[in-house]
Amino acid sequence: MSVIYVLVPVASLLAAAAVWAFIRAARSGQFDDLDTPAVRMLHDDEEESSEKKQAPPQQ
């Protein structure tokens, strides 16, 4: 069971890496606006399909 002395620190390091990634994300502004991306995501998805069908605007 002495493998635990290796595995637990390795797992802790993995957790630390995840925390580091989270901190980077937060500091780069990923969590500044939590409302708009929720609606934006839906638009981008739909647009692809509708734009293909749609004729270019006449002007």
Binding site: V19, G29, D32
Partner: peptide
């Protein structure tokens, strides 16, 4: 705000 979110994340981990 970002500092606050980092705090919550660290506390959760």
């Amino acid at each position: 705000d970002r500092k606050f979110i980092v705090r919550i994340g660290v506390a959760a981990a």
